[in-house]
Design a binder for these strands. Structure first.
Lengths: 174, 174
DNA sequence: TCCCTATTGTTTGGATCCAAACGATACCGC
DNA sequence: GCGGTATCGTTTGGATCCAAACAATAGGGA
């Protein structure tokens, strides 16, 4: 939507294509922009602060979660990081190979695996996070603090809508 | 941020970890939620409307762009869809194999490749898009029309900030 | 004690995804 | 014409990413 076509161009083209079909334009704009913004922001981070330490976005998020909360079971890390268990296995494997995190078996429950940061991982986050947060401030620079708060709140509504009713909705559509 | 920890818990843990370091909390929340929302929405779409036609999110976006704008040069499709040229090559290959899109050489400029939809692709979009838009309405159901408009506008600010000043920012950080 | 079910992390298979290198084509200046 | 530069799409290499199948473990009930 941000290419060489203006918003008005796009709306006209869409309506021409749909020919009178009712369209939820504002909702469409909102949903589409969520992804544009996410992709743009992610790319900016991977090509700025995450470039030096050679981390992907996901790897950083996993590090962040474990850094903040400390040693943590795999399933919870996946949930907090917003990825599946399978994906997490691969990411942690990468982090482990680079000496940033370690896997530990749970003492009581043999099914569980605990993930924690190494000293090197802790040290990395201590220096990296302030720089990361500075980029978060950069990408939201055109927003006032109040607007940033509003943005976060509106997005939270979307997330909770999908998390609370997504499953039943998908079931109903099947 | 939406796991089993509350927002207040997270904020406390982060501040404890940072130990007095100044933190842009609202900006951080906004940036983080963009990705949470994007991932949640994308997953919902891939597991609902896109499940039947077996399309990935990206494949659908590419189809959508070409559907709306008609035959289009590869570079513009990539830009509109928000992916790199290399990624687009692979996606179009998939779409072509499934008979939904075709590649055509540009008559005058031998470097260019035009992408367009087949009849089958057109037909698919005609039936699929209304269902897609209905899901866009679903994920934004907790937002009023006015809020949806606000959300789109705030996100647009983020996107344009990164697109307008991201490159120089990244250059300055190097 | 022994099965039966539920839960957890890993593996598998296929499709993205990006950056960077690459080959082909166009076009500009001489 | 003609070489040098710029632009375009493709290929390559490596890392995700998800869903689904899988193996291992836990825990309850007969």
């Amino acid at each position: 939507m941000t290419g060489h076509h203006s918003l008005e161009d796009t709306e006209k083209a869409v309506e021409a294509k749909l020919g009178g079909l009712p369209l939820q334009w504002e909702q469409m704009q909102a949903a589409a922009n969520i992804h544009r913004a996410a992709a743009a922001v992610r790319l900016h981070f991977e090509n700025s602060v995450l470039r030096g330490p050679d981390l992907t976005w996901t790897a950083f998020v996993v590090l962040w979660v474990v850094w903040i909360w400390g040693e943590m079971e795999t399933r919870y890390v996946a949930k907090e990081a917003g990825i599946t268990k399978g994906t997490l296995t691969g990411v942690v494997k990468t982090l482990e190979a680079r000496g940033l995190a370690v896997r530990t078996k749970h003492a009581a429950d043999g099914r569980l695996v605990l993930i924690s940061l190494t000293g090197k991982g802790e040290e990395l986050m201590r220096t990296l996070f302030p720089a990361f947060n500075a980029e978060e401030a950069f990408v939201t620079e055109r927003l006032s603090t109040s607007e940033a708060k509003t943005l976060a709140a509106l997005l939270r509504k979307v997330v909770s809508q999908v998390e609370d009713h997504g499953e039943e909705r998908r079931a109903a559509l099947r």
